[in-house]
């Protein structure tokens, strides 16, 4: 498994797409710094809100693109066949993709996080702000792996572009369940509440720990909330990986 993670990470780091994303995300953090300096009163808020949002969008893009294309790419090039001829089960390859994605996004988040920590001002209690920003970065990383797990699962049954569209929709849904619920209430469509119940079972509830903002960096979160977000993400990663392994178990690799 470690060999697979190592080789995939090495290979993906060489992708031009990824290098461009790395550069753009760095540029985005720099732009958020510049935009922040234009404001007199809300400098820190603008910098951190934009910077953290950029971090989440970047890791999501990396997760969505790579997870939906990795399997297809390996099948096309017959790398999958050479590796699968070894005494390993198919799910190991999928777990290898997720492991590599974790490492890759970890590098990306660490790089962007260090840039933010180095250049942005943390007014007030530096210690608690640092702790909070690390928790925020960990949840962003885990959310990206959940999205990656969904992308890998979709790529086991659909072509890369379809998988990508489904994965983007899944990410949007994971943030929008509370909004949909609100609209249903306002439109007096409570008979459709079963949709919300269904979505809550099928989609992770990212909206319950959407912490990528200055407010949360300053005010923090409870221990219970941190544990909930960690176990929620871990649960979804294992569930999606399990489903992906079931789907690929008897899939014909033509």
């Amino acid at each position: 498994m470690i060999s697979l993670i190592y080789i995939n990470t090495q290979e993906w780091l060489r992708l031009k797409f990824l290098q461009v994303v790395f550069f753009l995300s760095f540029a985005y953090v720099c732009v958020s710094y510049l935009l922040g300096t234009l404001s007199f009163t809300e400098q820190a808020r603008i910098k951190f809100d934009l910077g953290l949002a950029g971090m989440e969008i970047t890791t999501f893009l990396v997760a969505a693109f790579i997870s939906t294309h990795a399997l297809y790419r390996d099948i096309e090039r017959k790398t999958f066949q050479v590796i699968l001829a070894r005494p390993i089960a198919r799910w190991n390859l999928l777990a290898g993709y997720l492991g590599s994605l974790f490492v890759l996004n970890f590098i990306l988040i660490a790089f962007l996080g260090l840039t933010m920590i180095a250049f942005f001002d943390f007014d007030g209690d530096l210690g608690s702000s640092l702790f909070n920003i690390i928790v925020i970065m960990v949840t962003i990383l885990l959310k990206s792996v959940v999205i990656g797990a969904f992308g890998v699962m979709m790529s086991a049954i659909a072509r890369p572009m379809f998988s990508l569209v489904f994965t983007i929709s899944y990410w949007v849904l994971a943030y929008s369940i509370s909004d949909i619920e609100y609209f249903l209430q306002k439109a007096d469509l409570s008979s459709l509440n079963f949709v919300i119940t269904g979505l809550n079972f099928m989609v992770p509830q990212f909206y319950t720990f959407n912490w990528k903002s200055y407010y949360y960096m300053k005010n923090g979160f409870s221990f219970h909330e941190i544990m909930w977000s960690l176990f929620h993400c871990a649960g979804w990663i294992f569930l999606l990986l399990f489903m992906a392994s079931l789907l690929i178990r008897r899939k014909d690799i033509v």
């Binding site: 080789i7 090039r77 017959k78 790398t79 050479v82 001829a85």
Partner: peptide, 10 residues
Amino acid sequence: GFLPERPYFQ
């Protein structure tokens, strides 16, 4: 041991 036809190696 297996070698497929024209595989890609890293």
